[in-house]
Amino acid sequence: MAETNLKALGGLLARQGILVAFVVFMIAFALWNPRFIEIDNVFSVIRSSAILGVMALGVTFVVIGGNLDLSVGSLLSFSAIVVLDLHETPGFGPALAIPAMYAMTMGIGAVIGFLVGYLKLNSLIVTLGMLSAIHGLTLTWSGGQNMDIANQQETWFGIFGRGTALGIPIPVLMFGLLAAVLAIILAKTPFGRKVYAVGGNGTAATFSGIPRARVVFFTYIISSFCVATAGLIQASRTMGAQNTVGQGMELEVLAAVILGGASLLGGSGTVFKTVIGVLILGFIQNGLLLAGLEFYVQFVVTWIIIILAVWLDIATKRGKLWSPIA
């Protein structure tokens, strides 16, 4: 009897491992430091997760479509620097700077989408290269300088990062709204279905008359749209940005998406699960800070989380933690 209970528990752990681990973690931290689950701490975690979350929404499409996007952190820096610089350019202002930034960021997304979708180049190589190329582009644009908005009182640019509506911070609202729209696109439209098909089995999708290249192309367009939105929130919140503001975020974004349960092989995952993944990552990082660990420790922890998530993912699929065959 005890053995069957243990087996049932093992099965639950294997299937819902990440959620179970999350709950255990939350309880342990709450017992240690009750401040962890106070309502204002919870809201602060959600608010600070918004930028990462918006980016993760787009990358979810790319990953379900069977590809990677390692350029999102670099692209975030680009979009923040560009929108700030254009904002300060005489004759532009927010009303022109924002659409121009979206156009340029999504233009880069289109280049990636073309290379990966139509030319069928390996997405890891393309986006890893792009990570570096976009960084160079950002530095060239900014001349190596950080960007600031000079007259912060005279612009409405700050509302995207600092404003609230109905008492909810605008970044959280944008994250929620975008998550809802993208969740519907992924789950309920023919395009969403095609993303799953192309990521699940690209050859079979082609044999079913699905324009694989176009579908992959649009996953990168969506990803770059999300990065542009995240860049807008970032630039607006601080009214200024460093060239390196998004550095390293590609891994955090990927960690959130995988934590949510999207398979790196493509074809599975949902927007809702990614939102859960983003929150898990946010709470873990927050918990570590409250526990008094140094900020930089979270880079190490994020890596450990990625490894654990990937391991649990494959262990779940083959039904045991280790196997002599892959």
Partner: peptide, 20 residues
């Protein structure tokens, strides 16, 4: 390899070419 998206449901596989 060519006929099916194995992870997808039976229904979604059947309707795949005409999902539009």
């Amino acid at each position: 390899e060519q006929g099916l998206v194995l992870g997808m449901s039976c229904r979604d596989n059947i309707t795949l070419p005409q999902v539009d």
